[in-house]
Design a protein around this nucleic acid. Sequence first.
DNA 1: AATAAAATGATAATGATACTCATTATAAAG
DNA 2: CTTTATAATGAGTATCATTATCATTTTATT
Lengths: 143, 143
Amino acid sequence: MTDRLIWQRLEESNYRLTQQRQAILDVMKENRGKHLSAEDVLAEARKKAPNLGIATVYRTLDKLSSFEVLYKTVFDEGKYRYELCEDENHRHHHVICLSCGQITEIGEDLLSKLEKHLESKGFEVVDHQLIMYANCPDCKRKK
Amino acid sequence: MTDRLIWQRLEESNYRLTQQRQAILDVMKENRGKHLSAEDVLAEARKKAPNLGIATVYRTLDKLSSFEVLYKTVFDEGKYRYELCEDENHRHHHVICLSCGQITEIGEDLLSKLEKHLESKGFEVVDHQLIMYANCPDCKRKK
DNA sequence: AATAAAATGATAATGATACTCATTATAAAG
DNA sequence: CTTTATAATGAGTATCATTATCATTTTATT
């Protein structure tokens, strides 16, 4: 995601960019493609804003997610991870290594292609999960 | 998943089927295709085993997951959900309604097909996430 | 029946996240 | 500029899901 687009999103949301928010955003920009937990962000951002509190980190990460500047994702570990949005179409594709837990980004569209692609890269695919976020027929009707 | 296969998995794991474990397993079998939280399971299973404690529920759900009798999954809500395994290939496909949170099972393989399929059923697809579980090249090599 | 091993339930501990509130920083108005 | 209103912050507390502990009970083995 470009700085320009980030700015645009913040502006149209009338979001004041305080020192601590700037620090958090900078950390996210310096870690493109990585999936940081709130604690990760706190540790990094405190290098820039030493008194930063964890509450502000959560508040800011949530707000930035709601502006679609960050993705908020959950893997199988009971906590959220945040990542700078990379493109317009909202698609996330991740590989999680079952041994070391390393999370790698991928950019394919079809599952079978994807699996073959990964295996050609040396991965051993064990399982996968696809979640679609949608409004169900009932809720769509009510809106 | 057939009763026969469940039995087989429990037997090869030498898993004693106590009253409380039986109650929990029964609840899972009565709720095929649904995604129950630990609290859901507790509430249902207490109808069969009134003194059942939450600790036993967690212990049992975890064990059954490790025997591949249950799937343990996490959606964007900060808690785990459990579901009786349905087939051999471990594929999960879910739709989550963004308004009511309802989780629906789906059985398609290609993303675009899937999306069209859902939209023809009246869903409004907003986003999706695909997670592949694998051993990364490094870890695969080390094994 | 006696003994050892496993399972249970109650409760406490933990970890991630959300909430509350007094204090501080920023913006707008005079 | 000051004053005043509004928003943001950090510390601490609360909450929720999950895990760990431990005394008691159940089950299996001798």
